[in-house]
Nucleic acid binder design. Structure first.
Lengths: 181, 181
DNA sequence: AGATACATGTAACCTGTTACATGATTAA
DNA sequence: TTAATCATGTAACAGGTTACATGTATCT
């Protein structure tokens, strides 16, 4: 299990949100994190506003302080940002604990998107590797009944982890079959 | 979904490890995080050593710079630390993303521990609430076929999340039945 | 004796959280 | 007009990661 550097995903989520909606204010983006995105990723406006500022500076997004309405600023995706988003979506998934998979899938709109297929395949491999690792761990640690009773909690969660991975694999395989057919 | 302050768990994990092994050096504790605990929680020696220092100062653990052997220091659990560990294990689980459940279960040694039953029950309620929430979300967002195809990715992960919760609930119920019987 | 690995420790950095702050708009 | 809320922003803090540093065994 190689050590993988933690990736920053917040900017890409914001880009994804902007792609889906095309013209938004900061607080509208914030609202997304309280609702749908919030199921998978949490943040607050204290992170969003500085991030928007940075992305404007980097020309990933454009800002329009338009209209007479309040002090609101409207943001929209720029080509560079679109490019960054595509990069993030297609770059390899890593077996991290903070699950990037649902996050990326969230931004796939089209069922026939090649990126979707790619994501499912990558995720499948990750879970296969994990399952192999876990079952191996299980046999080396708990082949004797005595070990199970001596460290019951450890045994339980390992068993649970294996079941979870199995379930994930089942789902991924079903999905891939559906897309193929 | 109430907002819950993030809890610091590292010290309690270390206490748990020390409870299981009773006499350990810093690097031995570090090794645990590379092996079994590493499945559920990651950290490095840069966090462990200062944490050990703090816990020695707080009298949660004792330190012995014994023997002629190296510069090694041996740590062991003190009553105050034992107490802190028990507190952590029994305090209510929160529906956080970073899963405390497997972490706490890991440290349960005895199958008949009342804490195990408590943890399973708490986790059951959390997952029930989450499942209810997710299914509700599903019906409000995707009751029409058109919505599914327009935002296929979103639909997919919501479906997956529901399946995952269902699977978790099944497992938890099975376990609770086994403990009862 | 020199090189390598081990055990411990510290410092700089990055990111996310909490709390505070300001103007502008709506409600009473 | 005052109070409450909304939209935006900043500052202080806390926690974890990466990189650096030091001394001590072990190996050749």
């Amino acid at each position: 299990m190689a050590i993988v550097p933690k990736k920053r995903v917040l900017p890409y989520i914001i880009l994804g949100i902007l792609k889906l909606n095309s013209q938004m204010t900061g607080s509208e983006i914030d609202a997304e994190f309280q609702h749908e995105i919030g199921e998978f990723w949490q943040t607050t406006h204290s992170q969003i506003y500085p991030e928007l500022k940075r992305m404007v500076a980097d020309q990933w997004i454009g800002q329009e302080t338009s209209s007479q309405d309040r002090k609101q600023k409207w943001y929209h995706l720029l080509p560079a940002g679109e490019h960054q988003l595509q990069n993030w979506l297609t770059e390899p998934l890593t077996p991290s604990t903070d699950d990037e998979f649902p996050l990326k899938v969230f931004f796939i709109q089209d069922q026939s998107s090649p990126i979707l297929y790619q994501l499912l395949t990558q995720e499948l491999q990750i879970h296969q590797a994990k399952l192999t690792h876990l079952t191996q761990r299980m046999t080396t640690l708990f082949d004797h009944q005595t070990c199970q009773t001596a460290n019951f909690g450890h045994y339980l969660i390992l068993q649970r982890a294996i079941e979870r991975e199995t379930n994930s694999l089942q789902w991924l395989e079903t999905m891939l079959k559906q897309l193929d057919g």
